[in-house]
Design a protein around this nucleic acid. Structure first.
Lengths: 214, 214
DNA sequence: GTATATACATTCAGCAATGTATGTATAGGC
DNA sequence: GCCTATACATACATTGCTGAATGTATATAC
């Protein structure tokens, strides 16, 4: 091959990331070699080393590429002027679960992160970033909860830390468990019931309140 | 070194598995080499190849070694003659969560499985075994639920598949989330509240029933 | 007491992946 | 129309690990 235009170079970069996603998903992040990714992308390793520092750099770029679609939905839920914060939160959670089922790219991403990835060595910083992302979501949930409490959608004496942590765990748990065994349950149908059960528990479970007697 | 007695050989084997646990936890399963494990165990790679076929075999042996303590507790909950199946289930879940916090070995195991392990290539069968183990637990939960329903501890029209899947997801989600960020919450204290919230939802959430109106 | 299987240590060949160095043809600025 | 940075491909050296082969000293069976 020869020198491409800038637009073509960007496309090459995207091709490499697409290929990486496929290969990471098929063989696992650590087991995948740059040779694998290169041949999947229809280029040589030289091209990869031109666009990226090394495999870890490719992986990070691939992860970064796909954090966008969820943000807008989540933001609306934590907007203080939103009259129905719990409704937005419900929408968001259902959407997230259904995306995991229906969007093959999203599902692949989840499977890579949950099953095909070692958080160690070079990837140790990825664990930190996961933790940061986790705390971000927790912060959003906390603000959304505050709005919901102000509007009487959640009880005033809800233990914020406990309930946020609990709800967040529910989401990751459902996704992870379903990915492990997708056959046992039609998650797309069950999503709303799962989410509603979580919200029901938030609203009514005494064990998530600060003062047990209320 | 020289020829050891059978008892000493068994101890060597255990040493290797202990070392593997440490090294897998520190470097990740795929990144760890047999050389690492050997030097951690104070033996040479020759010793490992004597006791095991390869690294994957070591890993499998390490995983198999630690499935025992939970079984007895879980079994009591699914015993049809148990007068308080939900109470046993509660005990078991709380115990499981607290073990993840307090028992360093158990925690290490969880961290290896959740964060330091790629389920791909040679480890693909491990994913199958995870799935099997998951279905085992689901089966136990199903039987326990049946007992609880028979004894009036859970509603008659509970959707078995949905509720079992949901509860199981809660457990794995809580453990996984806490392992990612142990600082934000004292899980040992929160464990009972989390479990009670889950049980509360099982008992009262309309979204887990088969017929919504009841 | 001898023979043999055992429980390792040591050595070696070979591969596969990585990173780098170099080649090369073109795009785009002047 | 030339020059240079760009966007790759190709070739090479190095490394680290694996698995198997071999060595060896001792339990243990007989």
């Amino acid at each position: 091959m020869v020198r491409r235009t800038k637009a073509e170079a960007l496309q090459t970069r995207a091709q490499i990331l697409d290929a990486a996603e496929q290969v990471f998903h098929r063989k696992g992040v650590l087991s995948a070699s740059l040779k694998d990714i290169a041949s999947e992308a229809g280029v040589t390793r030289g091209a990869i080393y031109w666009h990226f520092k090394n495999k870890h750099d490719v992986f990070m770029a691939m992860v970064d590429r796909s954090r966008l679609p969820f943000d807008s939905l989540a933001e609306r839920a934590e907007d203080a002027s939103e009259p129905d914060p719990l409704g937005r939160l419900r929408e968001f959670m259902v959407y997230l679960l259904q995306q995991a089922v229906c969007d093959p790219g999203q599902r692949r991403l989840f499977e890579i992160m949950f099953q095909k990835c070692e958080f160690s060595g070079e990837n140790a910083d990825l664990l930190d970033r996961q933790r940061d992302a986790c705390r971000d979501s927790a912060g959003r949930l906390t603000r959304t909860f505050a709005n919901a409490i102000a509007r009487g959608q959640l009880p005033k004496n809800l233990d914020r830390v406990k309930s946020v942590t609990w709800l967040h765990s529910q989401l990751t748990g459902v996704i992870m468990n379903w990915l492990l065994d997708p056959e046992v349950l039609d998650l797309e149908r069950a999503a709303t019931d799962f989410v509603d059960t979580c919200l029901f528990a938030l609203q009514h479970s005494p064990s998530l309140r600060t003062s047990p007697g209320l």
